[in-house]
Design a binder for these strands. Structure first.
Length: 199
DNA sequence: TAGGCGATGCTCT
DNA sequence: GAGCATCGCCTAG
């Protein structure tokens, strides 16, 4: 499948704006095993000064990438079992990012099924830990520029996107009331409780 | 279909 | 020593 690489002028700067703007954009993973790719259908914004953000306590070894520049990959291990993939979103010195929570599988579906050891299309990339497993994303891909990297990059949306829904973020305790989760309404590949989607 | 819970390793207090 | 931007398996209904 052919994808066209995005350039910086097509992406919003600013964390909340980027979280909205990434809906519909394609995340492409090229590895020795082949290509796998999916359309982003769900994101969460972790903004400047956000108590729920890894950047809140300032730069550390783990979160250093968040303080560099926009459109880098920030990958970390959560609960000792799953990786989460984020896109950095603010200029150097400001720590912020957008968590990608779910993809609609587009390309390399058999490859993703092998990595996931599952043939459930709907669950292949539905959830932050699942999509990183499906695309073989781990800490070795932290800090890559998604505009220039050959292995992990962003591509132009293949079709118009549907209406965007907004809700509280999932799985956090601090600043849990803030409505910083964005998703394509009605898309079956969106994660989370079906009831957590007031307009 | 929903809710409870263990696995597992790193970060922070 | 507690908590965590999760997942998958189990049970109850």
């Amino acid at each position: 499948m052919i994808f066209e690489r995005l350039d910086a002028s097509e992406l919003a700067v600013g964390t909340e704006e980027l979280a909205r703007g990434l809906i519909g954009v394609v995340l492409v993973r090229d590895s020795v095993d082949g290509r796998s790719a999916g359309r982003i259908v769900e994101t969460e914004a972790y903004v400047i000064g956000d108590p729920a953000s890894h950047a809140y306590m300032g730069p550390r070894q783990r979160n250093a990438t968040m303080f560099l520049e926009p459109f880098l990959s920030y990958v970390y291990l959560i609960y000792g079992t799953s990786f989460c993939f984020n896109v950095t979103s603010e200029p150097r010195g400001e720590g912020a990012g957008v968590l990608v929570r779910a993809l609609e599988p587009l390309d390399g579906i058999e490859l993703m099924e092998r990595r996931r050891r599952s043939d459930s299309l709907r669950d292949l990339c539905r959830g932050p830990g699942r999509l990183t497993q499906a695309l073989d994303i781990d800490r070795s891909l932290d800090g890559r520029s998604l505009l220039t990297d050959p292995d992990l990059w962003l591509a132009r949306a293949p079709r118009a996107r549907g209406p965007i829904g907004v809700s509280r973020r999932i799985g956090i305790t601090r600043a849990a009331h803030r409505r910083l989760r964005f998703y394509e309404r009605g898309n079956p590949f969106v994660s989370g409780p079906r009831t957590l989607s007031p307009p």
